[in-house]
């Protein structure tokens, strides 16, 4: 390893929980290695979009990346599993699965794709928000045009929930809802708040359909250049950053929820998640389409919320 600092990329802006976690990782790693390993953190997509930084990490151009699992889904089928809709019963269930055996299996699957999975971060639970219609049960989704990211899984999910999926660039969503091109979108509380989407779509229904984790990984090329001691230090610093990340995330969710509540957003609590969940069998079997993936799904479903 030369004298250059390791490059760490994140798509979120400074002060976002994942970026704060990376900054913590950097200082922890410097502490563990007595300053031998330095990390420069580049937030706000400074080094490219998530897809770009993922590809750059595979090529060895970026050493560390924090990305969400969507761009990995097309590469590493295992990462699709925790992205499946209505798979986790709660945040606690998701955390215990990712800390446990299923999580380790998914991180290990990254290696054949040029990445070393270091840790799971998270982005809470995503729910549907609309311009005016509450979503309590599948019937409420009929005819609703919901913006999704460009992802086959999200398209299938919204269709299975009973709505019409409209893939659209994130930056166009606000205007799209004002003009009625779409009726709503879906995201977690902090993004819903920071994007100001709540100003134009003030009905937030707690469908909590997806709790896909975020992934923190190292380029295998960069990893291979590290000494065994330094590798151990990287793993240890990454593990230490997870509880830090979760604590900041939980605070952020509470804050965002306060802001949007104060702004008069109607939060729909009594969502029939079971009714939606029942409609997901086809989605699960389409995407978890091998026996191994099916077993991973079952393992996660059979976990309790505190097994780890």
């Amino acid at each position: 390893q030369g004298s250059r600092a390791l490059l760490a990329a994140d798509s979120q802006p400074e002060n976002y929980p994942t970026v704060a976690a990376l900054r913590f990782f950097a200082s922890e790693l410097a502490r563990l290695t007595g300053g031998r390993l330095k990390v420069d953190v580049y937030p706000s997509e400074q080094l490219g979009s998530q897809n770009d930084t993922l590809e750059l990490a595979q090529l060895g151009g970026i050493d560390l990346v924090r990305i969400n699992s969507a761009p990995l889904n097309v590469l590493v089928p295992e990462t699709l599993v925790p992205s499946l809709p209505f798979l986790f019963r709660s945040i606690a269930h998701m955390r215990s699965a990712m800390d446990g055996e299923p999580g380790r299996a998914i991180l290990a699957a990254l290696e054949t794709h040029g990445l070393i999975g270091l840790a799971f971060y998270e982005s809470g639970a995503r729910s549907i928000y609309t311009v005016d219609r509450p979503v309590r049960e599948p019937q409420d989704m009929a005819g609703l045009k919901i913006r999704v990211q460009t992802s086959d899984l999200f398209v299938s999910m919204i269709e299975a929930m009973g709505g019409n999926a409209t893939p659209m660039a994130y930056g166009e969503v606000y205007q799209g809802m004002v003009q009625g091109v779409i009726d709503g979108a879906e995201n977690n509380f902090p993004s819903y708040e920071s994007s100001r989407h709540f100003e134009v779509a003030p009905v937030y229904s707690l469908t909590r359909h997806v709790m896909a984790p975020e992934i923190f990984a190292m380029s295998k090329r960069s990893w291979d250049k590290l000494s065994p001691d330094n590798r151990e230090a990287v793993l240890q610093a990454a593990r230490a950053s997870v509880p830090v990340m979760r604590e900041i995330w939980d605070e952020r969710v509470i804050e965002s929820r306060q802001i949007i509540t104060a702004a008069g957003v109607q939060i729909i609590e009594d969502v029939d998640r079971a009714a939606f969940s029942e409609r997901m069998q086809a989605v699960w079997s389409t995407y978890a389409d091998t026996p191994a993936l099916g077993r991973l799904v079952d393992d996660i479903r059979n976990m309790g919320e505190t097994d780890a």
Partner: peptide, 10 residues
């Protein structure tokens, strides 16, 4: 010391 293939990716 960044792999040149990055240039093609960018």
């Amino acid at each position: 010391d960044i792999p040149l293939v990055v240039a093609a990716q960018r």
